[in-house]
Design a protein around this nucleic acid. Sequence first.
DNA 1: GTCTATATGCGGATAGAC
DNA 2: GTCTATCCGCATATAGAC
Lengths: 204, 204
Amino acid sequence: MSNKTTQESILESASRLFASKGYSSVSMRDVATTVGVTPANLYYHFKDKEALIRSSLAHVFAERLSPLEEQIRRHATPDQRLEAFVAWFVRTIFENELFTRLILRELLDGNDERLAYLATSVFQKPFALLNNLIADCGRRPDPALTAASVAGLVLGHYQLARVLPHLPGGRPEHSSVERITRHVLTSLRATLKDGNRRGKDETV
Amino acid sequence: MSNKTTQESILESASRLFASKGYSSVSMRDVATTVGVTPANLYYHFKDKEALIRSSLAHVFAERLSPLEEQIRRHATPDQRLEAFVAWFVRTIFENELFTRLILRELLDGNDERLAYLATSVFQKPFALLNNLIADCGRRPDPALTAASVAGLVLGHYQLARVLPHLPGGRPEHSSVERITRHVLTSLRATLKDGNRRGKDETV
DNA sequence: GTCTATATGCGGATAGAC
DNA sequence: GTCTATCCGCATATAGAC
């Protein structure tokens, strides 16, 4: 148990540092200093830096998704469930900087192996759920594309939050969780409604 | 002139390397080797690594936006212009990996100073244009939020392209330029139409 | 303008004492 | 389980010859 504390401290410091500065900008010495141990000690707990990175990812991603499914189940209609999903997703992305920044870092720099891990262990469940919700709401020919749009839209808004205030008409409130949740939902509903009538852009 | 060639070679190699691996993963040696000169030579052309990074950004971002305005002007109706804009934007993002990856890197890691530069020197013009187009198309109370959605949606799709094939229902074609252009356009039009009737989510 | 040579420090990683 | 001490290579950066 006593060692578990140290290992967890390492993982917490490491993931924080990796998320904010990037893997290669963070040295083992940096991590060790933050934790308050010597660099050599890190090598007792983790084989090398790559192992520390992997463990940090796993540590942050694990169980981040548990609140989701129960929350969805509490709602009856497909539309309500969709709303619950979007609300959960926007909140998760915007209120877990650590989590979100690590995801964005992997999407930008991750090698294929780590990306595949990310896809299956983190994204797959919520993505499949969203897929089904969309399929239930409007009979689109290709729900996966719409699901990707929802995910991409939220991630995009998160990333643009830092520049939006510098742009004409951009206001900080545009990046609030509530605002974006509402906005994504109305766009999504409009798209689904529109798609129901015609299935415009989905011809494969 | 003779030195300009070397300096430009350096900038080209450097921006390519920075975009693909990140600033801190790329050493001055890496750049020098790629160019075919010695590391010391880089310091003749650029004060230090930070200066090389800045110059690389400026080099890639400069004049990337010139084709835009003329292309828009060739179309008459607001809706056609919007379509031209989206087509241009998606193509620019998806077909200029160098450009796009550097933008994403700045959004993730850039300090406030570099972000402000990015916003004013790269984003401002097209963003303002999109803003106006949206305002012309549907009388939304807050076009900037919708403009941010378009930008975020496209960036999001670009980033998700690497994981989408690993997800249920995800197919590589979902990330094609044509597909995403069409999809963004139909979503946007549905949202604008919907917004015209009610202005649902935009109450400040 | 470009090179060789080099200063100086930081990087990951290990051996072995406690 | 954590430390001290250390190896060794690579990093940024400079001095000075050509």
